[in-house]
Design a protein around this nucleic acid. Sequence first.
DNA 1: CGCTGGTGTTCGGGAAGTCGAACGATCTGG
DNA 2: CCAGATCGTTCGACTTCCCGAACACCAGCG
Lengths: 206, 206
Amino acid sequence: MVGGHSGQDGSVRDVLATNLRRARAERGLSLSELARRSTIGKATLSQLEAGTGNPTIETVFSLSRALELPISDLLDHRRPAGLTVVRAAEVEPLSGAAVDLRLLRRLEVDSAVVEVYDQRVRPEGRQTSLGHVGVEHTIVQAGRLGVEVGGERVELDAGDYIAFDAVAPHSYTALDGPVRSVLLLQYRGGQQPDLVAPHPTPDEQS
Amino acid sequence: MVGGHSGQDGSVRDVLATNLRRARAERGLSLSELARRSTIGKATLSQLEAGTGNPTIETVFSLSRALELPISDLLDHRRPAGLTVVRAAEVEPLSGAAVDLRLLRRLEVDSAVVEVYDQRVRPEGRQTSLGHVGVEHTIVQAGRLGVEVGGERVELDAGDYIAFDAVAPHSYTALDGPVRSVLLLQYRGGQQPDLVAPHPTPDEQS
DNA sequence: CGCTGGTGTTCGGGAAGTCGAACGATCTGG
DNA sequence: CCAGATCGTTCGACTTCCCGAACACCAGCG
């Protein structure tokens, strides 16, 4: 989770406390010094690091600015990186009219999510989507791929790349022979790509 | 900025106000309903949406939870996306001992950066890196790829995926015939991946 | 017409965040 | 051994955030 939404447990205070202490330590700053730079009272800082305290967002932003650190780094606890291997053979494919998708990895960076798919387009038909949340990135590696997005038509050769806002209706077609490509689906955490996506979105905005 | 660090102007309040209104509208929730779900007073919500207010992080988290939206989406203002096409033929390749890399796209989400490369590994030799900042993701699409990371050896077939912290020394080898793959290089903004990286970087890093 | 159930707004006060100042604890140099 | 300068913590005050209640407004309905 985390990167997913945000903090989940009730211990928002503790997460901040920990991250704050660490960030300050990494920078070799004293509490007093940080207080000076962030124009935040020493008292306030002390309490925050003690886990006592429920700071205002403005306070958090001041810290973020002074520490040159994104808010997410203060409010989320992040995980380390290791070594990960995913075998295509061990992943259940999601098959559509003309494509097979295998989810290889789901990355969560800050509040964004990037899903990495192995995508194979069969020459038979056409894969259509009415539109969904997020941005699609496709890197073609073999074959010729036809992409249609909101009226526009584009043909891609091996090595070519396309990206588009997926809310617009779009479709994929293998032009001559099967196509191999990598699909990156990028969206904001909390949203649901929901590849079928019936979202109306009333009107919005003041 | 923004994506950069966080909010910059003093109008943190206004950003939140706008994002909140929009998020609530998208979900078709009434203020009262949201108040109920988030266990936040209607009064508080009303003030927040009016731009009057400097909420506590706990309040923000409650909203984040109720709206199923990451905090960054509430606190940052983000821009839309369009349609982008990059032709491999028009990109100057970065050639190494055994690989050709073409930078297709550079994504910046929040404070993170993801670079998308078209990667071709030639069967001749071996591409070695002593290590650099970031995480490497490789999706093999054709051929067999040998990867060596900090001692471990892995062989990948078409469709397979590997990811590892790139600070460790690593190398790529095409096992039989040329390999086509997609390389994602992920690192935190402000850092420099420096792919050649003769950097010894004594210890550091957890 | 008034009643009911919904909306989003404004108001009072109890609770809590923020700040400056004072505090004890270290560490330094004279 | 004691001034001086830091460190991080604690205390009282001022401010303000948060909530429940009361408010005005609108739509549907008997």
